[in-house]
Simulated assay, not measured.
Amino acid sequence: MNFENLEVWKRSARLSADIYKITSSIKDYGFRDQLTRSGLSVPSNIAEGMTRDSNKEKVRFLDIARSSIAEARTQIYIGIDICYIDKSVGRKWLDETVALSKMLTSLIATLKMTADR
């Protein structure tokens, strides 16, 4: 399965790019770096995982991607609270992180059902 064809990869890559663009003016480098890293981790781990040979390895990397999306979601909540992220942008990102998490959970479940035979 080519990771570039996965909707979850496409959407997470778009979210990561949006995070980079919109947070580029945040002067708090530590916060910005942490959020961009967690956002970038999602499509990167999907890509890395989907190129692995075994479903067990694929699932491991997809689980890391799912954890990274939860980390990013936490940072987005905080960014909204401290006025680093506009509420409307943050809400859109939060909704997208929930959708991506569900997509990853579904993909993981599918891979586990079709475990290496």
Rank of each mutant, 00 (worst) to 15 (best):
E71G: 08
T105L: 15
S54P: 13
Q75T: 08
L100R: 05
I78W: 03
G79Q: 08
I85H: 01
A70T: 14
Y84K: 10
E48Q: 11
K56N: 09
K56L: 13
L100I: 15
R73K: 15
S88P: 00
V89T: 04
M103Y: 00
I85Y: 01
D63M: 09
G79D: 08
K102H: 13
D81R: 10
G49V: 10
L104P: 01
S54V: 09
L100F: 06
K58P: 11
A99P: 00
R66A: 00
G90E: 07
C83G: 10
V98I: 14
E96W: 06
D81Q: 14
M103H: 06
N55F: 09
M103F: 00
I69E: 11
V89A: 02
R52I: 04
D86K: 12
E96R: 08
I69S: 11
A70D: 15
C83Y: 12
R52D: 02
L100V: 02
I85R: 05
K56F: 00
K58A: 08
A99W: 04
I78D: 01
S67Y: 06
I69C: 12
V89H: 05
A65S: 07
K87T: 07
K56C: 03
R60N: 01
K58V: 06
T97C: 05
Y77I: 10
V59I: 09
E71Q: 07
